[in-house]
């Protein structure tokens, strides 16, 4: 029997569940057929990044690129990214997010297939939408050694916590990782008041769009203005979507500085007074 995935007429990060809930995803890389009762569909590039590697060619999907190493990403930065004509701060922000997300996959996903990346620019909302997906082992497997009893959703929350890395529980990390990458990306989305979605196994965490500009950055993702649960169709790997409203950040360094302060305040060893 041919595995089919049904696409809704619209699926963006705000209503991503419309794409996930009616479907199941293959456990291996067997190609699936994409169908839709709608003639036209409008999808977040994360849908394309997830489905392109496991589906037959489909007009529903936007173009994707496969990244196998940092040199591929460098190539993407020099050849493709300039076509989006981003201002200097948005360019830094976009490179930062894509670098951290793809590197995370290349180091932790344990898959030879690399990471699939897709971008679209919405002229109407002046938003750059990013999707990064892999078919690797997923977050739960990556940090299982240190957190063996957690569900997929709980491991996502753990992975977003400052200072938590799957490779070590030593404060400050090891020579290669510090457990800051995902926290920084989520925090950048928070400062933009924008969507950030992290999906792995049956767990999904979604930072919700905020209408108010002011909001306190929180180290504990359970305290974020967010939704999520552990009852989604199983995705073999990890998928991340971020929306970047363009021309909103005037100084990327100011954003980084605020996140740095929050990261440090939540990872400093706390004195135990008895």
């Amino acid at each position: 029997m041919i595995h089919q995935i049904t696409l809704p007429n619209s699926a963006f990060l705000g209503n991503f569940e419309k794409f996930l809930t009616p479907n199941t995803f293959p456990l291996d890389n067997t190609k699936v057929d994409l169908t839709s009762p709608y003639k036209w569909v409008s999808l977040h590039p994360l849908v394309s990044a997830m489905l392109a590697p496991i589906s037959h060619k489909s007009p529903f999907l936007s173009s994707v690129i496969t990244i196998h190493n940092s040199l591929d990403l460098e190539d993407f930065f020099s050849k493709t990214l300039p076509s989006y004509q981003l201002n200097s701060q948005d360019l830094l922000l976009t490179k930062y997010i894509l670098s951290e997300l793809t590197r995370n996959t290349l180091e932790h996903a344990s898959t030879p297939d690399g990471v699939t990346l897709a971008l679209t620019h919405s002229v109407k909302t002046d938003t750059l939408r990013l999707g990064v997906s892999d078919r690797g082992v997923g977050i739960k497997t990556t940090i299982r050694r240190l957190y063996p009893d957690q569900t997929d959703y709980e491991t996502i929350i753990t992975a977003l916590t400052p200072g938590v890395t799957g490779t070590t529980n030593f404060s400050g990390g090891n020579t290669q990782n510090a457990g800051a990458g995902l926290f920084f990306v989520k925090s950048l989305a928070h400062q933009l008041g924008s969507h950030f979605l992290l999906y792995s196994g049956t767990g999904l965490f979604k930072l919700l769009k905020r209408k108010t500009i002011r909001s306190i950055l929180k180290p504990d993702s359970l305290e974020d203005h967010a939704s999520g649960s552990n009852d989604f169709p199983f995705w073999h790997g990890t998928a991340v979507g971020v929306d970047i409203p363009l021309n909103k950040i005037t100084d990327f360094n100011t954003a980084l500085t605020q996140i740095r302060a929050k990261f440090m305040s939540s990872t400093e060893p706390k004195a135990q007074f008895i």
């Binding site: 930062y96 020579t175 510090a178």
Partner: peptide
């Protein structure tokens, strides 16, 4: 150099 990531700087100088 106009920008970098925390991960890059970590790999460069944390050890």
């Amino acid at each position: 150099i106009t920008g970098s990531t925390q991960s890059f700087i970590h790999a460069l100088i944390a050890e």
